[in-house]
Simulated scan of single mutants.
Amino acid sequence: MSSIYTLIEILRSTQKFDLDNALYLERKPWSASSQALVLDPDDVEEALDPDSDPKEAKDFGMKYAIMMQDLDDICENLKSQVSSPTDDQIFQAFIYYMENDAFIKLRV
């Protein structure tokens, strides 16, 4: 069984996770304290439906959000603009990417 994290815990430390895994989140609206799981997206019981979420995610009412590699790219892009981003900046960069399919550009 995987550990449940808050979204901000995962955003702060994307490198600690296997980048081939995926982030699963509870339903929107998301907050920094939203519950989250990092799981292998291919660990599904329904072999006929490759888009199905892993059972553990379903058990917690979570859905696929994004691949960890993409999440790491979001955080690295932010760190290239701000050497020590705040939790709010990290969370806003995530939300911006999820809503715009693009990296945030800060005015610094």
Results as ranks from 00 to 15, higher is better:
A47M: 13
A57Q: 10
D51W: 12
I74M: 04
E45W: 09
L19H: 13
D49T: 11
D20Y: 07
Y64M: 12
E99G: 00
I10N: 07
M62Y: 11
C75F: 02
D51E: 15
W30Y: 08
S83A: 11
S33Q: 10
M98V: 08
F91I: 02
Q15E: 11
S34N: 06
L19P: 00
R12Y: 01
Q89W: 01
A47F: 13
A32W: 02
S80G: 04
D42I: 00
Q15N: 06
A65Q: 13
I95S: 03
E99S: 07
A47G: 01
K58Y: 08
S31G: 06
S13C: 04
R107H: 06
Q35D: 02
I66H: 02
T14W: 05
L48W: 14
A102I: 00
F94Y: 14
D73E: 05
V82L: 05
G61K: 13
L78V: 04
A32Q: 06
I8R: 05
R27L: 09
T6M: 06
E76R: 09
K105A: 06
D88A: 11
E46K: 04
I10E: 09
C75H: 03
V82S: 02
M62E: 02
Y5C: 01
R107K: 05
D43P: 00
S34C: 13
D88G: 00
V38S: 09
F60K: 13
K55I: 14
S33K: 12
S33T: 09
Y5E: 03
S34F: 02
E9D: 11
T6N: 14
D73M: 12
D51F: 15
V82P: 00
L71K: 07
S3E: 11
D42L: 10
K105F: 08
A57P: 01
D40A: 12
D43M: 06
A32N: 05
L39N: 03
W30M: 03
Y5A: 02
T6E: 13
T6F: 03
L25Q: 01
L106V: 02
S34E: 09
S52H: 13
I66Y: 07
D40Q: 08
C75G: 06
A102P: 00
F60M: 08
M1T: 15
Q35F: 09
D43S: 04
C75L: 08
D43Q: 11
M1D: 10
Q69K: 10
M67P: 00
C75I: 15
G61W: 15
S13T: 07
K28Q: 04
D70H: 11
L78Q: 00
P29V: 05
W30H: 14
D70R: 04
I90W: 00
A102L: 04
R27M: 05
L25Y: 01
S34Y: 03
E45G: 12
I10H: 04
M1W: 08
V38E: 06
P85D: 08
N21H: 14
K55Q: 10
W30C: 00
I95H: 01
